[in-house]
Amino acid sequence: MTPDHRYHYHVIRRAIAEIDAASAPLSLDELAGRMGMSPAHFQRLFSRWVGVSPKRYQQYLALGHARSLLQERFTTLDTADAVGLSGSGRLHDLFLKWESMSPGDYARGGDGLTVHWGFFDSPFGRALVMGTNKGICGIGFVEETGEDAAMADLAARWPRAEFTENRAALRPWAQAAFFGQTTEPTPLHVIGTPLQIKVWEALLAIPSGHVTTYSEIAESIGNRRAVRAVGSAVGRNPISFLIPCHRAIRKSGALGGYHWGLPVKRAILAWEAARTEADASATNRVPRG
């Protein structure tokens, strides 16, 4: 049975608020009670959604968790070559290809381009997905911003394109993006300036469950003083989650910004870290023969 992922995110969003408001870590009984659930139901929901206990997940949601990730799961992007896409070894397994729109397409603002769009449920609430005939060109989360604002935001990237609602065409890509339900790899079709494309390539080199810093990305693209420009490019990433802008944080361990709201960024980072831990635990339990 497929979980109601949108409902799960609403519970997580409420849990974040309760955890932030508490003066000390909450027990399972306390947290479940504040969610209006029985401890058993709360435990089942979390275990099904992320693979670890509510107590452990609460640690991942803590405000200081990003600092811990920086110490324990920091990814160094050594050189610009390390984040190149030749061989695609570090690309998401679902990607068939990464293709950037031509400078001409960028300059024309999408003139002559048809962009399909639709709203879908995701592990992090309602999401807007956009795509051309070449692949996904936009993903935005709407729980914090609202559907109208998300639509206006992404559509503004291609001011002269023609937009048409077409959930049926996008559904296979959306299911692959959020739940890994696919029989064919999923292509990405992005539009951006040369600097933005370099930054987004660097983001793709950060493994799930890990983080890097804005300054590290600037170093990797050969412009160590462009930290502010890197931060702006991260924020302009059109394909959230798949191009993992949420994995970029500040040197201090502070989360920094997130285009679709910091609660979503915290939830995604915690979800990925917890799943990485759960996968590692499952691997260690596999008998070796």
Rank of each mutant, 00 (worst) to 15 (best):
F95P: 00
F95C: 12
F95E: 14
F95N: 13
L96W: 10
L96I: 03
K97T: 14
K97P: 14
K97C: 13
K97F: 12
W98Q: 13
W98M: 15
E99S: 14
S100L: 09
S100K: 07
M101L: 11
M101C: 02
S102T: 15
P103Q: 00
P103F: 00
P103W: 01
G104H: 11
G104F: 09
D105Y: 09
Y106V: 12
Y106W: 13
Y106D: 11
Y106C: 09
A107N: 12
A107G: 11
A107M: 15
A107F: 12
A107E: 15
R108P: 00
R108V: 09
R108S: 15
G110L: 09
G110W: 05
G110S: 08
G110F: 10
G112Q: 08
G112E: 06
L113P: 07
L113A: 04
T114I: 13
T114A: 09
V115R: 00
V115L: 07
V115Q: 00
H116G: 00
H116E: 04
G118Q: 01
G118C: 03
G118H: 01
F119P: 07
F119W: 14
F119H: 13
F120T: 07
F120E: 06
F120Q: 05
F120H: 06
F120R: 01
D121P: 04
D121L: 00
D121S: 06
D121H: 02
S122Q: 07
S122A: 02
P123W: 05
P123K: 03
F124N: 10
F124T: 10
R126V: 09
R126K: 12
R126N: 11
R126Y: 04
R126H: 10
A127W: 05
A127G: 04
A127L: 07
A127T: 11
A127F: 01
L128K: 04
V129F: 01
M130E: 06
M130K: 03
M130I: 04
G131R: 11
G131I: 08
T132R: 08
T132L: 09
N133V: 15
N133Q: 15
N133C: 12
N133W: 13
N133D: 15
K134A: 15
K134P: 00
G135P: 02
G135D: 06
G135A: 07
G135W: 05
I136A: 01
I136G: 05
C137G: 10
C137F: 06
C137T: 13
C137E: 07
G138A: 14
G138P: 02
G138R: 11
G138L: 10
I139Q: 03
I139C: 03
I139D: 04
G140P: 03
G140H: 09
G140K: 10
G140S: 13
G140A: 14
G140N: 08
